[in-house]
Amino acid sequence: MKKIIAILFLLVLSYGIYLSINSIPFGVSKTKVGNYYNLNGVKDTGANNIVTAVVLNYRGFDTLGEVTVLFLAVLGFSTILFTMKKKKSDNMPTPPSLILSIGCKFLFPFVLLFGIYIFIHGHLSPGGGFQGGAVIASAFLLFYLVKPSEKSSKKSFQLIESLSGMAFIVIGILGLVFGNYFLSNFLPKGIAGKLISAGIIPLIYIFIGIKVGSELTGIIDRLMGKNNEKQVK
């Protein structure tokens, strides 16, 4: 019964979407705003990667919100799991195999480096702070796989998160001070294509990278069950 109702409703919904989608033809250039970004992005921001230019400069405020959302996720995550009963599990997790542990130890610095590379070059090539941060977090995931009992310092993670978040805002406020607009690109834009160019974009991306890295690591850390053991029924 429920299924039939659900399907009926969804059919109506799909029909509605079908009707409205007609006015959005597929694969045709149609937006004024997007064209503007493509045409003037490099000139305006000094970043080769237009998506980065949009994310951090034209719509930097969205990104601030986005960073906040991620911050929130970690916060909420740890709030919800905060009062969890800490149970000592009887059986220690099986130690990882030799291949895994050696391989991970070997890979860890490279992955970390790759993550850093990605967010530093966010304005030049595909990638950026979020992606880089995710890569960094995966490095820590490897690390945890090898040493499940390792206790990471949650305090320092939290500090890094909030400091880098604050740095983002402070850069924004500096923009307000020097350039009259919040988050305005007040630093010299340099020559597009060079590493040190595009004003505040790389700077912000570095902070975002650090922040996202530590946040995702925090989430992984929690989900790995460091201080909340698996429930035994």
């Binding site: 034209y58 405020f61 009259n180 607009y181 919040f182 305005s184």
Partner: peptide, 12 residues
């Protein structure tokens, strides 16, 4: 208030 100083509707 413009964010980042870009003319509308390109900025926020």
């Amino acid at each position: 208030v413009l964010m980042g100083g870009y003319s509308l509707p390109f900025g926020i």
